[in-house]
Design a protein around this nucleic acid. Structure first.
Length: 273
DNA sequence: ACTAACCTGTAA
DNA sequence: TTACAGGTTAGT
């Protein structure tokens, strides 16, 4: 579920609660949710560790613990991290409970795609999925030039290319469609066919839509909630995602729906070319 | 470059 | 009953 704005919102809401707290107990309710570090079991390593900080890289959350350990969390489609100030009976789809020096942190996930792994902090950028991630679209060094350089060799559609986390980290199906609409670019265009002008508009569209998503605390189209269980608000501002066969809010023409890179893609054939 | 796989829930 | 869902990966 969560893309960059949702993961960033979870990070911000979570950090207020758990930064500086100690993990006093780990209860793994569904073992496949955790990934151990070599011979050391997840609970073994994590019990007794202090949470120093939480960062985000693409759609991953990185918890820096003390003693040189880190947690790497990915929500995939329906994962949630929920903080409770008091002891709480795990709900139906909760797979992992951290008891903290104050309150509890629950990881739940209806579809069971999400994972949390423990890894030495100095290994996380080299021996994890983070190693292959493309640039952060909201960092100052993400320029239109940088984006253009990463698209020129790609013969795939621009939609599929934007979803490739090795090209750019953090976009998913919602924000890719919304960014392409803002840039006026048709999703089935080959990535390498974009003009300098179009890359410039796409760069702006990506940054604008991600910043707007964060400002609205994410998109709760269906399952997404922040660490306090609150919905986001960006679903009210979506221009194309989830609006197939509805009129374009800009020109009134019916929005078209097609399947690209295995994902439903919505766009306006009048406003986007 | 697609498709199936991983899962469960919900809506058509 | 079938199709589809904010993701990623490992297979053709």
């Amino acid at each position: 579920m969560p893309e960059l704005p949702e993961v960033e919102t979870i990070r911000r809401t979570l950090m207020k609660h758990v930064s500086g707290l100690v993990i006093s107990k780990v209860n793994v309710l569904w073992p496949a949710v955790v990934q151990n570090w070599q011979e050391r079991t997840f609970a073994d390593v994590v019990t007794g560790r202090k949470i120093n900080s939480i960062e985000r890289r693409g759609k991953y959350l990185l918890f820096t613990l003390d003693e040189g350990w880190s947690l790497l969390a990915h929500m995939r489609m329906t994962g949630r991290l929920n903080y409770y100030p008091d002891e709480q009976t795990p709900e139906r789809h909760t797979h992992l409970v951290f008891s903290l020096s104050q309150g509890e942190l629950h990881f739940s996930d209806v579809r069971k795609f999400g994972r949390i792994q423990v890894i030495p902090t100095d290994m996380r950028l080299t021996s994890s999925s983070l190693a292959k991630l493309g640039p952060e679209p909201l960092e100052p060094d993400f320029t239109a030039d940088l984006l253009g350089g990463r698209l020129t060799s790609k013969k795939l559609s621009i939609k599929a290319t934007l979803l490739d986390q090795r090209v750019l980290a953090g976009l998913g199906n919602i924000y890719a469609d919304e960014a392409l609409f803002r840039a006026g670019i048709a999703p089935e265009r080959k990535a390498c066919s974009l003009s300098t002008e179009e890359i410039f508009k796409l760069h702006g569209g990506i940054q604008d839509v991600l910043n707007a998503g964060i400002s609205s605390k994410g998109t709760s189209f269906r399952d997404y909630r922040d660490a306090n269980g609150q919905k986001g608000n960006f679903q009210a501002l979506l221009q194309v995602y989830g609006r197939g066969n509805e009129p374009c809010l800009h020109c009134g023409k019916l929005l078209e729906k097609l399947r690209l890179a295995g994902r439903t893609t919505v766009f306006c054939s009048h406003c986007q070319s």
